[in-house]
Design a protein around this nucleic acid. Structure first.
Lengths: 123, 123
DNA sequence: CTTGCCTCTGACGTCAGCGTCAGGTTTTAG
DNA sequence: CTAAAACCTGACGCTGACGTCAGAGGCAAG
């Protein structure tokens, strides 16, 4: 398929797809006239890239890890990096859970304030 | 205390603290010569700001929500925003969990590959 | 008094992940 | 055949959370 279709299929902008190629995250065949051609499997690949971006990995890290994630090829170094990234994600999850719980507490307290007296400090 | 001490106490750069003030996240008294003076409670405040930044909130949102979080003062609108932010954090947690699980799977598979045959694709 | 560290206010630099415009070619629909 | 739509390659713009440098004043110690 061409880039426009891949974009609509994945919900990612054409610009972003070109950017992924620039970052060596997503390869493409070229037609004789120079237009990008993607196999169907590229859609999954794009989803994976999105997922890793969402996990906070920068392009470089994704580029390093993708071969391993896709092919299962791993050197001990790559395995270490994978573990390190997973640990980083874990701690970020912890941070987010803390923040969410804090907000939940605030929401509960402020709601109670609102329904009772209004305008009284939380603790 | 002065800004340098607050910085070392919280592990946040002096520049960041001035930036927080610029964004109306952190107030300070000024000495006659113009130097910033902070009470001890500012350290907690900075931690809270950091936590909200870590949760992915931009300065503007933090500035809007901080009075509510700190004082428990909330209008219905603010409560809605708090809930919305909490939900956003929740869905981000979901994304991160998915990504982490994916990485864990990859790590397990690649480790197995490494110990057995080496160089065989994951699925 | 002066040395050295801390602080001040601008103001420009950075980096990532794209958005967007320009100017030109290619593909498709009628 | 032609007009519209999609594609191409630069290349500049943008946003947020600071880093960093410049130039100047403030403050405790010897």
């Amino acid at each position: 398929m061409r880039i426009g279709e891949l974009a609509t299929r994945t919900g990612v902008s054409v610009r972003a797809l070109r950017y992924y190629e620039e970052q060596n995250l997503l390869a493409s065949q070229r037609s004789p006239s120079g237009q990008r051609q993607y196999p169907d499997s590229s859609a999954d690949r794009v989803q994976l890239i999105q997922q890793l971006y969402a996990a906070g990995l920068p392009s470089k890290a994704i580029a390093d890890l993708l071969p391993c994630v896709v092919n299962g090829e791993a050197t001990p170094e790559l395995l270490d990096r994978l573990s390190a990234e997973r640990d980083r994600i874990d701690s970020r999850i912890g941070d987010l859970v803390d923040a969410r719980d804090r907000l939940s507490t605030v929401i509960a307290a402020a709601t109670a304030n609102w329904r009772t007296g209004q305008r009284c400090p939380i603790q």
